[in-house]
């Protein structure tokens, strides 16, 4: 074996060791790396009432109620993952992207009655990028309602241009 091939094998062996170590570590910590819990997980294993968790899911259509209390906006809405829903209460201004059908991540605690009191609400947008004229057109023709879920398959609209959609 030449010195070059020996060095190559040493490097390959070291890389294999490091990658398996990294893979094992990530597997072991995977529940901590998860950024948020889904409503069905929260319902199945409710965390302790004093523990701050992140709850992620879609804002259920028709569930948003806003009232103003002492000059501060108080919002309540249901967050769902399709299997379970959790009612979230949040006092404060919601992010611009917040709407029914939008994915959100709320930071807060689960109350004894099963509700969720959020101290912070973040909007999570999906990987669909669509000109707003195309979205309007899909809504107008009844092909898609953003309040009830993800956009249809990209192949059906990705060549629609603003002009075609508007006309």
């Amino acid at each position: 074996m030449t010195r070059k091939t020996r060095r190559l094998w040493i490097v390959i062996a070291c890389l294999a060791c490091i990658s398996s170590a990294a893979a094992l570590t990530l597997r072991a910590f995977s529940s901590n790396i998860v950024f948020f819990m889904a409503p069905s997980q929260v319902k199945a294993h409710p965390p302790a009432p004093d523990r701050t968790i992140r709850l992620g899911g879609m804002v259920m259509a028709g569930s948003l109620h806003r009232i103003t209390e002492n000059g501060a906006p108080v919002n309540s809405f249901n967050v769902t993952d399709g299997q379970a829903a959790v009612e979230v209460h949040y006092t404060g201004i919601l992010p611009d992207l917040f709407r029914e059908g939008q994915s959100v991540v709320a930071l807060g605690t689960v109350q004894k009655d099963g509700g969720f009191t959020a101290s912070e609400v973040l909007a999570k947008h999906d990987e669909t990028y669509m000109p707003k004229e195309v979205a309007e057109e899909l809504k107008r023709t009844g092909k898609w309602d953003p309040r009830f879920g993800k956009a249809p398959d990209a192949a059906s609209w990705d060549t629609m241009t603003a002009k075609k959609a508007g006309g």
Binding site: V34, F36, D126, Y129, M130, P131, M160
Partner: peptide, 25 residues
């Protein structure tokens, strides 16, 4: 893909059609 994140998944993948309008791609 492995964990749920606040960052959205990739729009352009090797395996599927991009979930992005051609006018932005």
């Amino acid at each position: 893909q492995w964990w749920n994140t606040l960052h959205q998944p990739d729009s352009i993948t090797l395996t599927g059609a991009p979930t992005m309008s051609m006018t932005m791609l």
